[in-house]
Nucleic acid binder design. Structure first.
Length: 488
RNA sequence: CGGGGAGUGGCGCAGGCCGGUAGCGCAUUCGCUUUGGGAGCGAAGGGUCGCAGGUUCAAAUCCUGUCUCCCCGACCA
């Protein structure tokens, strides 16, 4: 019965990899820096996707799809944007292979006149289309989202958190006024916050990025920041106000009511499969993955226990109506009727995969009109009456959802401090967690803190954590405390 | 690009110093016994030892070259 998952306190990175592997979420791919998402991991992602998609539609957005390849010239139209992505692009230079003695090689004859970039993000190719879609104020706003894969040639990768290729959604909107665009940026940040907290049970701090942490080409980057169990911060989603930068770069103008030609205002926003990593590092334990009921691919698993065929049919007969009742309530339930594994194996496996509730049913339970109900989050096991079991499970699932959020929120709060002096900051940052402190607003100070402590400013919180004060490093005035942490 | 480590059945590794024709655990397949917390016993299948060259009667092992991956750093809107 040896545990296959490394102790969290001993080695958090190894623990994380073990959880991913034991939960059968994903594997390292033979392709450098990429991952293979396995069915269980993908089912989880699809549930997240469905919830987000619903929220996007509710806020008036539609899905569309744009090309994977971006002509090199497109990427260079917005100066800051190029600079931000230049160092991490996969570039297509040739179109053919040719056979040689030991296999194939790139045919030098097939060199492209203009190289194609595998999209690291789609602002450029999308704004190239928007130019043709927008003529009048009547064409605005354009509220579009794309589900896609993107590629960023990262030096170092980690499953889900930073892979070379990742799945995400990117929203790209165009508006007639600045106010409307800013409003959209904030609205989508709020959608992300709601999703993180209500579905993932992962509390987040919302705020604005500092200039140096801003998206390349954005005027303002808003973000949600979550705290993982090891006290490191994770940027879980971003929403950018792009001003008129892309409209100017791609010459996207519209004619206003009074006949003037004006550049449109833009936003973009995205979350990725990194959220899966955040979900793991928010709730899971030394037995493996813990999933919030709202997102779990299976919410309840039934493990039948029997010694012979006679008991088997009794158990199945007893369990089936329970399963039917649960399905009727819209609960995702699965019977684990594999016969080549014993119950103990199944218990451990479903725990590793994070199934919120387990129902064990054997002869003993049938005799007493009971079932054994086990919670994944608390690992509590209880023998409960079979009567009214479906409703009880329904309530328990929503209780687990709430409890997971509360536990994560308590953890975040207990590891959040306010400090006044830089000396104190240097000591506290070693303990991990979030630290609020005053900062003078300059990139120099920000850089100095980063160099000396490895802590970055995660965000300037939208809900101020304090009134005005003095920068902990320079003593210059500061409007409010900002959020510091070491991050993923 | 700097520093370190590793390439041996599907996965994880031993063997290498001291050359003799490849082994262990997990997984897989078959059989029997099991099944309320990751089952036991027996049997079976599966490997051009990263690649190329060299030394040798003989190379996973020694020599030369080369490729790849991992970790730490640099980098990461």
């Amino acid at each position: 019965m040896a545990k296959r998952i490394t102790d969290r306190d001993k080695d958090y990175s190894q623990w994380y990899l073990d959880v991913v592997k034991e939960a059968k979420l994903a594997d390292h791919s033979p392709v450098r820096g990429c991952m293979v998402i396995r069915p269980h991991g993908f089912a989880l992602w699809e549930n997240m996707k469905a919830a987000l998609d619903g929220m996007f539609k509710e806020t008036g957005h539609e899905n569309a799809y744009f090309p994977l390849f971006i002509p090199k010239s497109f990427l260079s139209k917005e100066a800051q944007h190029v600079e931000g992505f230049a160092k991490e692009c996969a570039v297509v230079t040739h179109s053919r292979l040719k056979s040689v003695d030991n296999g194939v090689e790139v045919d030098p004859e097939s060199k492209l006149e203009e190289e194609l970039i595998v999209r690291p993000t789609s602002e450029t190719i999308i704004w190239d289309s928007y130019r043709n879609w927008i003529q009048s104020y009547r064409d605005l706003p354009i509220l579009i989202n794309q589900w896609a894969n993107v590629v960023r040639w990262e030096m170092r990768t980690r499953l889900f958190l930073r892979t070379m290729e990742f799945l995400w959604q990117e929203g790209h909107t165009a508006h007639a006024t600045k106010e409307e665009a800013v409003e959209e940026t904030e609205r989508m940040l709020d959608v992300y916050k709601t999703f993180a907290e209500d579905y993932m049970a992962m509390p987040v701090i919302t705020g604005k990025k500092t200039e140096s942490e801003r998206f390349a080409g954005a005027e303002e980057t808003y973000c949600i920041e979550a705290m993982m169990q090891d006290g490191k911060a994770l940027q879980a989603g971003t929403s950018h106000f792009l001003g008129q930068n892309f409209a100017k770069a791609f010459d996207v103008k519209f004619q206003s009511k009074d006949g003037q030609h004006e550049y449109v205002w833009a936003t973009s926003w995205g979350v990725s499969t990194r959220l899966v990593g955040g979900l793991i590092m928010t709730h899971s334990d030394d037995n493996g993955l813990v999933l919030p009921p709202k997102l779990a691919p299976e919410q309840v698993v039934v493990v039948p226990i029997f010694r012979n065929d006679e008991q088997k049919s009794e158990v199945l007969e007893y369990a089936q109506p329970i399963i039917d009742e649960l399905k009727k309530l819209g609960i995702r339930v699965k019977m684990d009727h594999r016969e080549n594994y014993n119950p103990g194996y199944k218990f451990a496996e479903h725990e590793a995969q994070g199934v919120p509730l387990r129902l064990a049913i054997g002869p003993r339970d049938i005799e007493n009109n009971n079932v054994e109900l086990a919670r994944r989050d608390t690992l509590e096991k209880n023998i409960v009456s079979r009567d009214g079991i479906a409703e009880k499970i329904e309530d328990l699932l929503s209780q687990i959802q709430t409890d997971l959020y509360d536990a994560a929120n308590d953890h975040m709060n207990s590891r959040t401090r306010h400090v006044d002096s830089y000396e104190e900051f240097k000591e506290e940052i070693e303990e991990g967690g979030f630290i609020y402190a005053h900062w003078d607003g300059t990139a120099e100070t920000e850089e100095k803190i980063k160099e000396e402590t490895k802590a970055t400013i995660r965000c300037i919180p939208l809900k101020p954590a304090s009134g005005p004060g003095r920068c902990m490093v320079t003593g210059n005035p500061s409007e409010q405390m900002v959020l510091f942490a070491r991050s993923y």
